[in-house]
Design a protein around this nucleic acid. Structure first.
Lengths: 216, 216
DNA sequence: ATCTTGCATTTTGCTGACAAAAAGCACCTA
DNA sequence: TAGGTGCTTTTTGTCAGCAAAATGCAAGAT
């Protein structure tokens, strides 16, 4: 009875993407409750697609079942945050291991190109550009595993931890340091020595994790 | 009282569980298409809960979007199967690493109790009993990581690969061999040397994976 | 024969509504 | 005052149905 022509199809995705964005960008803060009916009004759709979007985000761990009713933006205790990063840490290390075992010239090139973009953005102190480039860099590594299942898990963690990792990059120096760290990491991964690659990634992740936890 | 889980969505969960069971037990074979309306009739519910159940199973990777329409039971090429097991392999190794770093007496005891049950079932050549005990054994290891997020991922892979792993246990000797293999694995994990633990798990998984792939 | 083209059928995504469960609330009792 | 007790409001799970999109199909064109 409202809104005549909506883009038939894709309402669920639209809602999901919008919520994801709101959460990443901090419009919705951790612990905030989400009301189905409210979202219904906001997006001009009925409860069914809203409900499915919420359900998907819950499955991804972005939202959690609220204490009494409904869902809320996941908020993590310090300990839970540490556990999530520990898991992510292990996944990344595993990715590095796999990549080092089967790096192709194409993959290597993609990673290097992504890294160049990181350096440029870092030097220009372009935060949002750097975040995007950094994302591409890591995604390129995931893809280089040649294993979509590993890549998916790694990607999921990255999405989930996005809001927390973002806080790490406060100053120009943070960006430069991260870009330098990428270089070291790459040299390990491209060494084709899986032991060195996983150790290198482990060091990278430990460092990154410490800074992130400090910033949260 | 861990089982006092909320019973939100009785029908959805009923459908989801039933389908999961059908898939594990082979009633539904890989590649088989699932028709919403058919399921609607079978379970005597409307499309909404059926749809949500399918959606959840799809998110878990148990079902995949069909080529033309609808969803179908995931079927994997040999290569995809290898990739899934490679990923699972890495996750299990990571779990072993973590466990070895912080094994508690309680966790150790749980693992040992589960292993005892495995041995008993294996010696009695009780296949379904062994599968259950084996499941408990691995879940005990996951729990011992103290990291619910790692445990969740590992558990998801286990569910997903269940149908394929089951085929590995064809003879009495297979069960006994698996039980023996557990013993070796435990000695590595309990060594509190993370390098040894991950190497041990890596060997265990490689062996197990080779047999599974051979049986599929 | 093969390739369009238009129509009929099936499938999907979504809507609005409803019944039941849960949470809030006011009142009563001890 | 603390602790029930029953009623009201809110929230949730489910339903039946509709309209768009996808698919199948058959007649006509090339």
């Amino acid at each position: 009875m409202e809104k005549s022509e909506n883009t038939r199809g894709g309402a669920v995705q639209r809602v999901e993407a919008a919520l994801l964005n709101d959460i990443s960008s901090g419009v919705l803060s951790p612990g905030e409750r989400l009301d189905e009916v409210q979202l219904t009004e906001r997006f001009g759709v009925s409860r069914t697609p809203v409900r499915e979007a919420l359900s998907r985000l819950t499955a991804q761990g972005i939202l959690v079942p609220g204490a009494k009713r409904g869902v809320q933006v996941a908020e993590y205790s310090r300990e839970e945050l540490a556990q999530i990063f520990e898991a992510m840490h292990e996944i990344e290390v595993a990715c590095a291991r796999i990549v080092s075992q089967r790096i192709s010239l194409l993959s290597r090139s993609e990673i290097e190109i992504a890294q160049k973009a990181c350096v440029i953005a870092a030097e220009a102190n372009d935060l949002s550009g750097f975040l995007q480039a950094n994302e591409n860099f890591h995604q390129a590594i995931y893809r280089a595993t040649g294993n979509p299942y590993m890549a998916q898990i790694a990607s999921d963690f990255r999405r989930r931890t996005g809001p927390f990792r973002a806080k790490k990059f406060a100053s120009h120096e943070d960006l430069l340091a991260s870009a330098r760290s990428h270089d070291v990491l790459m040299s390990h991964i491209f060494s084709e020595d899986s032991g060195e690659a996983s150790a290198g990634m482990r060091a990278h992740m430990t460092e990154s994790f410490m800074q992130t936890l400090a910033a949260n």
